[in-house]
Write a protein that binds this DNA or RNA. Structure first.
Lengths: 149, 149
DNA sequence: ATACAATGTTTGTATAAACAACAATAGTAT
DNA sequence: ATACTATTGTTGTTTATACAAACATTGTAT
């Protein structure tokens, strides 16, 4: 009775329709929770995601286009998002000498520090950890991957 | 290998983390597809959702607050979204006589017509229908509901 | 009646997303 | 060299979202 209650709907016409609404609704729910959590660090969920992406490459910098490719929200504006992070001194922008079209982005020590602070309690905080089993997480990933294929 | 490819990431630290990113990513993917589909009708995905909500109540009108309660994006501004629909003459706004604080919203004939046009090929269009089985849809719904509980 | 709290909706403002057009550099073919 | 095309990022503009404050109306307690 979960989703029906959350969107106050008695019934869905079929399970596929319900699944679509369920994904969209759960995503919005998750995003709102994440936004509330990250607020004390003064970053947005996608900014957190970009910082993690850059940490994955650290100490090597990444091109802006490569960052964009790994983002969750493919249509969001990577230039401006990275600029926000730069203003907070969480990332560094460097014009590339060998190819002057490209801009190299890397995470700063300050950026790494924020991530490690978040790491400390983020996993525990994330309700998803407690609410579903590992087996269910695996099954969820399998179905979502299949859905998009 | 689905999500790892989509966000160009080699591995996730654990299945729960991956599941979270997977939900967010799949939702964004779905939303972009829906937005592209609804574009020819000049409405957004959440506007479509609100029209369906109002059709569910039709011919009885709904209070603005009741519409907001059923929306997927709980934080979005219902007043302004409904106003957009009113400008397109897809819904009707009526000040309630018995309780002059409240505004009654109902779907118009034009709104119903658009929905029926969408109905015609939306189900067929929705990739989710073809890509996962009914059993998988049911399992997906179960896990997502559990996740939020 | 009067004041106070609750309900239902709107509005202001700051921030972000969507989409397209633009600009600069690099690579390639003639 | 010149023109053409592809690559890589930026900027402008419109629209949507997030959050809080405001507003009008109704209900309730004294």
């Amino acid at each position: 009775m979960g989703l029906e209650e959350d969107v106050k709907q008695a019934k869905f016409t079929n399970e596929h329709q319900k699944a679509m609404v369920n994904i969209l609704y759960t995503s919005s729910w998750l995003n709102n929770r994440n936004a509330a959590y990250f607020k004390k660090f003064n970053i947005s969920p996608e900014q957190f995601n970009v910082l993690r992406i850059l940490r994955g490459s650290h100490p090597a910098p990444m091109r802006l286009a490569d960052v964009a490719e790994r983002m969750i929200e493919k249509n969001s504006n990577c230039t401006r998002l990275v600029e926000k992070l730069r203003q907070k001194e969480l990332v560094d922008r460097q014009l590339c000498e060998s190819n002057r079209r490209q801009v190299d982005i890397s995470i700063t020590a300050k950026g790494l520090k924020i991530l490690s602070e978040i790491d400390k309690d983020y996993d525990q905080w994330l309700s998803i950890q407690k609410s579903i089993t590992k087996t269910e997480a695996i099954e969820l990933n399998r179905i979502l991957d299949k859905l998009r294929s």
